[in-house]
Structure formats: structure tokens, C-alpha cells
Computed example of a mutant assay.
Amino acid sequence: MIYVVLFITVIYLIFIGLFIWGYDKVNTFHLHDIEPKTTFTVVIPFRNEANHLPALLQSIKALAYPKHLFDIIFVDDDSTDASVKIIEEYLNNCYNISIIKNKRISNAPKKDAITAAIKTSKHDWIITTDADCMVPKYWLNSFDASIQGTKSKCIVAPVKLLLEQTFLNQFQVLDMLSLQGATLGGFGIEKPFLCNGANLGYEKTLFYELQGFEGNTHIASGDDIFFLEKALKHSPKKVNYLKCEQAVVTTHPEISWKSYIEQRIRWASKTRHYKNSFGKLTGLIVLLMNIVIPSLLILSMAGYLSFKPLLYLIIIKFSVDLCLIYQSALFFDQKDCLKSYFISFIIYPITSTYIAFSALFRPYKWKDRTFKI
């Protein structure tokens, strides 16, 4: 037993250590004043986002990129609230924003929405974000400068959660920071395996070359990860991470533990379909490590094992996880959430294990719809 635990711990340390090292290998991109050239279509699927759309629209209004070089397509996925009305009221003064209806052709409504928008898009590059996000002023400028400098075909960009003072919020922020740290670290060691559809860009021609989401439309989620896998297989040297402060998209946290759990189950449900072996192995090692800690605690309390190995394991995991999260917290300017790290560290192995096993056996709810695993 102890040798199995030791093996898992060593492998976990190696993986997280690689991400910490890889994080700094990705150079920070500093935005320079250059002439904008790239044309963009921003695709924003939405369903019942009336509470969040005003903030998104306000951030879109503040974009510094020349309006003739981009347009925005909102895709209505059968909203039943005032979402469409809110956008239509905003359209009066914006010639480069439009709304279309989603055309459902698969089990994946968001993939259908993105595909429908791309079919009507007029520009060279597609950037996706979500209706519960806020985009920074120089968002498109950052993408343009990166494209001109790197000749990328696909760009993964940073996402952070809006930081508030509740424990639930800070728990989610820490979780997101760890994911962003792993995303960046993966790119740094040239083993990318994560991205977020709230801030993802790619050439329209690449989308069609890869036949869009064909091959995974039976999976409700994963418009980002599965496309990334295809892009990496097709043009691995043309997929890059945009580590730029002016490119960070901010999204809202879940408002309850129930909605947070459902969101994470949705995210976890697609992992079994990953084709990236490194991503699968990383997920397995992280899961095993999170199972080991509560298991050792139970064995120690039952008298089958000394508390000393458990204490050593906790100290090791606590320290290495903190290093990765601290790097992300510095970049995203969210160090305030670290005050909740200790309690979050105790809770996380339990919640993540529950989410992982739930994703194997039960359906999840998303946007008032139920999806089978």
C-alpha cells in the first residue's frame, strides 16, 4: 500500500513540477502599438444570459480595435428570458453586431451554435467567448499582434474568474487558477492539452480543414478541447498560447455549490473522450492523488496506518500545488484568493473525487437541459 502511494506521489510531483517549470517557459507577450491587420468574427452563443449580457455588451462597446476589422455574431440558443431583447436594444448603434438563431443538428448545442455562426462569418479569424464574460479593451489588438508576430493558426488565451469575497467564489478562483496554470505549463513543456472556449481563436480556414466539430458532436461539451486536439494534430507548431495581460477574459463564477458541481461534472464528462494521451494521464494522476489523501485519512483514523505518512503527503501536495497556483495568481493579479487556499486544499480532494465519479455514472444539467453521459 505505502509503495503504491509513494509511486503516485512521485509521479504527481513530477507532473506538477513540469507545469511549474513550463509556466515560466511561456514568454509573456507585451502588446506594442502596431497597425491592426487581422479581421475577426467574434462568436458568442447564449441561452438565458439576461443577467450577464449588459456587462459583456459594455465591454464590447469599449473595445479599441477598429470596428471595420471585426464583427460580432450572437447565436441565440432558444433563450426564454430577455436576452434577445437586451442585445436588440444595443444593436441600434452598432452596425457590426448581429443575432442569429441556433440551428440544432446534433447533441451539442454550443457546437451547433458556433458552426452556424462560422457559416455566416465574413472574416478570416474566429474568436469564441461566452455570454457571461467580459472582454478587455485591447483584447482583439492582442490577438492581432500575436497573429502578426507568430503566424499562428490557433491561439489559446487566458481566462479568469471574477474575484469576490465569498468562500465559494474564492474556491472557484483557486480551481480556475490551477487549471490555467496547467494550461500554461502544458504549452511551456510543449505538451498542450487544455484550453477554454471563453477565449479561443482560430483561422476560419483551419476550422473547415479540420471539418469543424465532426467526430465529437455526440458529446454535448468540448467545443474547445476537442478542437484543440484536432488543431494540434494538424498544425502543432501553429498552435500557441497568448500569455498577455491585455488578452485576459473575465467570466462569472457559479452562484451555488450545486451549480459549481454541475459545471465541473459537465467539464469532466468529456475527459473519457480525450485523444490526447498526455492529457488523459495528467487527469488520471491528479485524480489518484486526490483519492489517496482521503483514503489515507480514513485508514489512519481506523488505526490501520500511522498519521505520519499522511502528514508528509499533505505537506508535499500542499506545497507543490501552492507553487503552481501562486504563479497563476501573480499573472492574473488575484493573490487575495490565496487566503482561502488552506481550507480549499482540504475540501478540494473530496469535491474533485465526487465530481470525477459522478461524471462516469450520471447525467448533468446545463442551461436548463439534461444531458446524458
Rank of each mutant, 00 (worst) to 15 (best):
F46C: 12
F7G: 00
P294R: 06
E209V: 00
Y90S: 08
L324A: 05
L63S: 07
A131N: 07
T38C: 07
R272C: 11
I105Y: 05
N199K: 03
K339Q: 14
L299H: 09
L177I: 03
F226P: 00
Y95T: 15
E229N: 07
T217K: 00
P66F: 08
E214Q: 00
S277F: 11
L162C: 07
L174Y: 01
F226H: 00
L194V: 06
I2W: 03
Q170L: 04
L360W: 12
F19V: 01
C94T: 12
E229S: 06
A131I: 08
V239Y: 08
H123M: 09
G181Y: 05
F171N: 04
I315D: 07
L360Y: 10
P253Y: 00
D130M: 11
G201F: 01
I355A: 05
E262Q: 15
Y138I: 09
S256L: 08
A82K: 11
A117W: 02
I99W: 07
H52I: 09
F143A: 02
I189S: 05
I72L: 10
K367Y: 07
Y354T: 11
S328R: 02
F307W: 10
H234D: 07
S235A: 15
F19Q: 03
N290T: 09
S178C: 11
A231V: 05
I44P: 01
F371I: 13
D81S: 13
I325C: 09
K151S: 12
Q263V: 02
S106M: 01
G149K: 12
T282V: 14
H218Y: 10
V173I: 13
P363G: 15
N51Y: 13
Q180L: 07
V26D: 01
P363T: 11
V156A: 14
A302R: 08
Y354F: 14
I347R: 02
N199D: 01
L177W: 04
D76V: 04
H30R: 14
T183K: 02
D78Q: 13
A247D: 01
F70M: 11
L184Q: 08
I373R: 04
S344K: 06
N216T: 00
W267Y: 11
N93Q: 15
V5E: 10
P363A: 14
K119N: 14
K25E: 14
C337G: 02
H234V: 07
C323S: 06
L13W: 01
D81Q: 12
T251H: 13
C154P: 07
T353E: 03
L161I: 12
L324V: 01
Q327E: 09
H123C: 07
K230D: 00
N290W: 12
K137A: 13
L210I: 04
I20M: 12
D24H: 12
S319M: 05
K367H: 11
L322S: 04
A145I: 06
F193R: 02
R272A: 14
E214D: 06
F19I: 01
Q165Y: 04
V5R: 09
Y208P: 05
